[in-house]
Design a protein around this nucleic acid. Structure first.
Length: 826
DNA sequence: CCGCTACGGGG
DNA sequence: GGGTACGTAGCGG
């Protein structure tokens, strides 16, 4: 039974299926009441363009009888490429998979010069051509009917775009998985769910009495229940942290072991891993699976103070709350002792934190979906360059431009090898510690330059301005790139400046509206996310010119932008240096020694000297800041730490703290930074490290603070290099410990005279540690990353005697290597 | 100094 | 629609 229906729908997802060889576009949407709707469109067909060689007639179809494809329609259309008119032939085909086949076939014809837009995914093509923007509202009419799964299914007849910008009610489910290694296998032992609609549940392998906890005797039934929850819960979005990379691959592996069907998609469809760039993404039909880690890594990390992108650190920064500080070894031990509550609690906390993080990040993903025009599943996994690319592709369709092709592998290589141009200007930092420093930066420097100087591939050295040159040299000079001979058109606005200008204009409008709203209200947050999404895309478009994989690649555009950028920042630095000390400057920002009182008038004076659209802004006033020069000396690396008047510390550019450093070394480095910034005294920091070294020397350190974690990435036998973690694993196995492929080995370097690998023991088998190794190879290098700035070196930490001893041992180690090679290889 | 191997997130 | 991630560092040889 079908009925004519008309309803308002917000689109949140899209895909297609084949029915009798013909594609059916599916749009997954929500109504304003929060109901789920599935819209079907059977009328849309895939297509691509062919440009014939001049004077050649293109055949209308490929020869039959060779298994080739007959198009549904062939027509000549007038498009433009980089602004220049171009006649192309549009081939409309039946199935999306016909496009690549037909393209390869027709490219073999002598009459074909080029092909275009052959690799735009069918469902994306549909959204672009219909002007449908995810998370925006449309008024749809068609024939509706209720599906077996409860939602309304509508055969689309017409679409109208609606202006409202609010969100529908989205039911968000988050989960987290805990795994324990036993008998060389990884077992799923706890799974916890949380949601924004009241559902909370934790599944445990074993018995735990607690609210919302369900207990299972075996992993098989736990996994069955996990699938049951995903099938019965009516959620729209499923969120996790590193679920593409960890939870789902693991759950699939375990489900396969028990032959459990993961029929959690629409109509029982099993999920698949699809490649999105370099990300293998877990895709569930009819649902949006978002892995927040992908989004954090690709997009959010840029603006975070933390260098470590763990759920703990990221949520500390974004939601003001982190995990309970606990060592994994302890959790594992209590689990094995049968005290299951601790791991359950830990897992529940993770699912809860993931939800809190999702509440902050999913609206940002939604807004980026609106700007890029891509569905949230894809948007959440895109890099900056991909977001920009889709924005440009959408705009191309709107203005009748052909989308330039992706470069091939060879072309990318050539671009990588040949492209080299000067980047932003770096004003060499005055290293060391400084007090009372103001940080200024340009508001959207590169986007503003693109607009102000009309930088676009088709406006470069345009014909219209070169004829103008003869009559009006000054006009041309006005838009000549500093220190270059290029210039950009001043008569016609370029394709890309046009897009960026639209973005910045929209952003300014939103910011005006935000000013009228109450700080922290729902509307305020939404608009703030919107202006932020716009800013992200505007800022990323410069990089897209210089990205070797870009469809709109232009080294000249990229280097013209940086040339103007250097010109303006130098101008500001010169201005500041007339009567002040500039401590550091990089691309679009500068640190100047001054108090908060002076900063306002400084900005006013500077901005008077800048052209329209370019503005310097005050970012903050800092009590102290620490600059560290890189070892390489001349190249001033962007490594610094700041502390503001409230005592908040921002650390930038120091190496990511990795698990292949022991906890004691990681802690030492952080302590040094904090100590210097807080007390403004490097001596205190130095003494602290010295005390720590003494403690290590006395053997007073708990072994678990000394563990270094390294993963086995292949079968043990196939390692040619006998690295410490490989050796530790081999020895452990020889003693009967089960270690599976892919597991992370936590080892300690124990006392002795042989090489490291000889003395590495897994934590469980280690009963002492080598103080010299931890002092010389862990704590000192970590601390010196900072302290070398203040003139400290290795000598300051250890006496001459110990140094020579260390050197002696090192020599001895080298002698023993050959012996060891023989011993273990054969 | 080069080449191999690993890091990231998750547990 | 699909390709190779990527940029950096420690340590062995």
């Amino acid at each position: 039974m079908t009925n004519p229906v008309t309803l308002e729908v917000c689109i949140i997802g899209s895909d297609y299926i084949l029915e009798d060889g013909k594609p059916v576009v599916r749009l997954w949407g929500k109504t304003s009441k929060g109901e789920t709707v599935l819209l079907l469109d059977r009328k849309f067909r895939p297509y691509f363009y062919v440009e014939p060689k001049p004077g050649f007639e293109i055949i209308k179809a490929l020869p039959e009888g060779q298994g080739w494809i007959v198009p549904e329609k062939v027509e000549t259309v007038e498009k433009r490429l980089y602004g220049k008119p171009k006649s192309v032939i549009k081939f409309v085909l039946t199935s999306p998979s016909d496009v690549p086949k037909f393209k390869i076939g027709i490219e073999r014809l002598e009459s074909v010069k080029a092909t275009y837009e052959y690799n735009i995914a069918y469902y994306k093509r549909y959204l672009i051509d219909k002007g449908i923007i995810p998370l925006n509202w449309i008024l749809v009419s068609g024939e509706g009917q209720n599906s077996l799964e409860g939602g309304l299914v509508v055969e689309l007849e017409s679409i109208e775009h609606l202006p409202q910008t609010d969100y529908p009610k989205i039911r968000m489910l988050t989960f987290d998985t805990e795994v324990v290694e036993k008998d060389g296998e990884r077992w799923v032992v706890v799974i916890s769910f949380n949601s924004n609609y009241g559902f909370r549940r934790t599944l445990v392998l074993g018995y735990v009495e607690k609210k919302n906890v369900e207990c299972f005797d075996d992993e098989n039934s736990l996994l069955h229940r996990f699938i049951g929850v995903l099938k019965t819960e009516k959620f729209d979005i499923l969120c996790g942290y590193n679920t593409d990379g960890f939870d789902f691959p693991l759950i699939v592996e375990r489900a396969n072991k028990y032959n459990i069907k993961l029929d959690i998609g629409f109509e029982g469809k099993e999920p698949v891993f699809v490649m999105k760039g370099s990300i293998s993404s877990f895709s569930i039909t009819g649902k949006i699976h978002i892995d927040l880690y992908n989004f954090v890594e690709n997009i959010v990390s840029n603006t975070l103070a933390t260098e470590v992108l763990s759920l703990d650190r990221v949520s500390r920064e974004l939601v003001g709350e982190g995990k309970k500080r606990v060592e994994w070894v302890e959790l594992k031990n209590s689990w094995e002792r049968g005290e299951k509550e601790r791991l359950v609690e830990y897992c529940e906390k993770d699912a809860e934190l993931t939800l809190k993080l999702a509440n902050v990040l999913v609206p940002q993903i939604f807004e980026l979906s609106r700007v890029s025009g891509q569905i949230p599943f894809d948007t959440s996994r895109m890099s900056y360059s991909q977001l920009v690319e889709w924005l440009f592709i959408r705009k191309s369709y709107e203005v009748g431009e052909l989308v330039p092709n992706r470069p091939g592998f060879e072309e990318i290589r050539v671009r990588q090898l040949t492209q080299s141009y000067q980047g932003g200007y770096v004003h060499t930092p005055k290293n060391g510690l400084h007090h009372d420093v103001a940080l200024f930066d340009f508001r959207s420097l590169y986007p503003s330059i693109i607009i102000a100087h009309n930088i676009s591939p088709e406006t470069l050295n345009c014909g219209c301005c070169s004829t103008l040159e003869d009559r009006n040299v000054i006009s041309k000079d006005k838009n000549k790139v500093p220190e270059e001979t290029y210039y950009f058109c001043i008569n016609h606005k370029g394709f890309i400046p046009e897009i960026i200008e639209g973005l910045l204009r929209k952003r300014t409008e939103i910011q005006q509206e935000i000013k009228t709203l109450e700080n922290g209200s729902v509307k305020y947050k939404d608009l703030n996310n919107r202006q932020y999404a716009i800013k992200i895309l505007a800022n990323a478009s410069y990089g897209y010119y210089g990205y070797p994989g870009s469809r709109w690649f232009s080294t000249i555009c990229a280097k013209s932008i940086t040339a103007w950028g250097r010109y303006y920042i130098k101008k500001v630095i010169d201005f500041a240096e007339r009567d002040r000390e500039v401590i550091y400057g990089d691309t679009d920002s500068l640190f100047v020694k001054m108090g908060s009182g002076e900063s306002i008038s400084f900005i006013e004076e500077v901005n008077k000297t800048l052209p329209e659209g370019l503005k310097l802004e005050l970012r903050g006033i800092y009590k102290s800041c620490l600059f560290v020069l890189s070892k390489k000396g001349t190249a001033a690396k962007k490594r610094y730490a700041l502390i503001d008047k409230e005592g908040n510390i921002i650390i930038r550019g120091f190496e990511k703290v990795r698990r292949d450093w022991s906890k004691i070394a990681r802690d030492a480095q952080e302590k040094v930074l904090v100590s210097i910034l807080m007390d403004a005294d490097h001596k205190a920091a130095f003494e602290e490290v010295k005390n720590l070294i003494e403690k290590v020397g006395q053997g007073k350190i708990d072994l678990k603070d000394l563990v270094i974690y390294t993963q086995l990435t292949k079968p043990l036998e196939s390692y040619e290099q006998l690295t410490p973690h490989v050796m530790a694993a081999k020895k452990a196995i020889a003693k009967g410990v089960k270690i599976s492929e892919g597991s992370v080995i936590g080892y300690v370097i124990t006392r002795g005279t042989g090489p490291l690998s000889e003395r590495a023991e897994i934590l469980e088998l280690a009963n002492n540690y080598d103080p010299d190794y931890y002092i010389n190879n862990q704590i000192i290098p970590a601390a010196l990353r900072v302290l070398s700035e203040f003139g400290y070196s290795e000598k300051d930490f250890i006496g001459e005697k110990q140094q020579s001893l260390a050197k002696f041992i090192n020599r001895e180690n080298k002698k023993e290597k050959k012996f060891l090679q023989l011993k273990y290889k054969i």
